[in-house]
Amino acid sequence: MTDLSQALAPARPRLAGRLKLALCIFALMAAVPPLAHALGEPFLIVVATRMMVFAIAALSLDLILGYGAMVSFGHAAYLGFGAYAVAVLSRAGIDDLFLHLLAGIAASAVFAALTGAISLRTRGVYFIMITLAFGQMAFFFFVSFSTLGGDDGVALTARSTVLGMPLLQGAQGMFYVTLALLVLVFAGLYRLTLSRFGRVLTGTRESALRMQAIGFRPFPYQLTAYVIAGCLCSIAGVLLANQAIYVSPAYMSWHRSGEMIVMLVLGGIGSLTGAMVGGLVTIALEEGLARYSEHWRLGFGLILVLVALFSPGGLSGLLRRLGLGRDAT
């Protein structure tokens, strides 16, 4: 029972370190546009925007995987729902970013509630496989959606507008809107994980049987977290569609779900700052290594193996061992 009490109690000494590291990350990202212009490398803004998009996706997955111990191989489906919300509404003449976000979140919430209610009745490898099956069902649905390009995807005519203003049309505007949403998602998850809901979810991860013994039913908490994670991932999908000005079923394949799990392993599972770092570093490594070799995945795999062997807590664990960002989990 002592372990359960520790799991349910918010670890106050760690919170200051977590926030300091997160604030440092946000400050560094905010400095990218002026630095890119100073270096004469505006492409860095585009890369940094993509990094932040996947940081949001990694944060959403960490809620269910890191805090709820739910290994989903269909999480990328929600990335696709957000992206296709932009494509469908844009074709209908609706260009507002907030309406795109609302549509993506609504579609993801419905899909997550229905599939989660079924998936959460299983455990272990069965949960992994059923989430994979649901994710692939969504993937093949959009592959067969010929009016939106099917397997080839569809190009957008323009990016979303913000209250009628073309804030996303330029790379810098797109960057700062993405940064603002990243901050909001992190802040929301930070508060959520510290709340009673978050502590019960963490306690369920440690021991569902013990949680039931003290009067908590894990299922409603897990399903709620599952739906919230899907909705947050759809935000990343909306941003990804705008950043690429293109939508494809490839966004929601099981390979993409696997990549998001890799981001958590690299950054640190069960750590919001770790998830954010994992998303940022993974995309940065992909872009950087791809410039030097078409076999960049070999180098990336080697880095991942080294992190897994020498820093099981991911990059956030490595920072703690080095005395940097102490307790920033």
Rank of each mutant, 00 (worst) to 15 (best):
Y78H: 14
S146D: 14
L181N: 04
A109I: 14
M70P: 03
L182E: 02
D62E: 10
L167E: 06
L101F: 07
R91Q: 12
A103L: 10
F134I: 10
G80K: 07
G164L: 11
Q172K: 06
I94G: 01
A113K: 00
G173M: 10
A155N: 11
A92Q: 11
H75I: 07
L148W: 15
D152I: 02
S90R: 12
Q169L: 11
V71R: 02
L101N: 08
L132F: 14
F139L: 12
A92I: 01
M165G: 00
Q169Y: 05
Q172I: 08
A83Q: 04
G80H: 06
T131R: 05
G116R: 06
V71M: 08
F140G: 00
I64Q: 09
V185Q: 03
A109H: 12
Q172M: 00
F81K: 04
M70F: 04
L65N: 00
G173C: 05
D151T: 03
S72Y: 05
T178Q: 06
T131D: 10
V88E: 03
V162A: 09
I128C: 15
A133G: 06
R91T: 02
R121H: 09
L89C: 03
F73D: 01
M174Q: 13
A113F: 09
A77W: 03
L99N: 03
D96T: 05
F175L: 08
G82Y: 10
Y176P: 08
S119Q: 09
A133V: 11
L65E: 04
S108V: 09
Y78P: 07
S160D: 04
T115P: 02
F145H: 09
L63T: 06
M165L: 15
M137Q: 03
F73Y: 07
L156M: 13
F81R: 09
A87R: 06
Q169T: 11
G173V: 15
I105T: 04
M165C: 00
A92W: 12
Q136P: 07
T131S: 13
S146L: 06
R159V: 13
T122A: 14
A158D: 12
G150T: 08
L156D: 02
S119F: 12
A113W: 13
A85D: 00
F175E: 05
A113P: 10
L184N: 06
F111M: 09
S72L: 10
L148F: 15
Q172H: 13
F127C: 09
L97F: 14
I118R: 03
L156E: 10
S144H: 14
G173L: 14
D96Q: 11
L99E: 00
L102I: 08
G164D: 10
L97Q: 01
G149L: 08
G93S: 12
V183P: 00
Y67I: 07
T161P: 07
V71H: 15
A112G: 01
S90W: 05
D151R: 11
F175S: 03
A106F: 15
G74C: 11
I94L: 14
L61T: 06
V71D: 10
F141C: 10
A106T: 09
M70T: 08
I94M: 11
L132V: 02
L132D: 00
A138V: 15
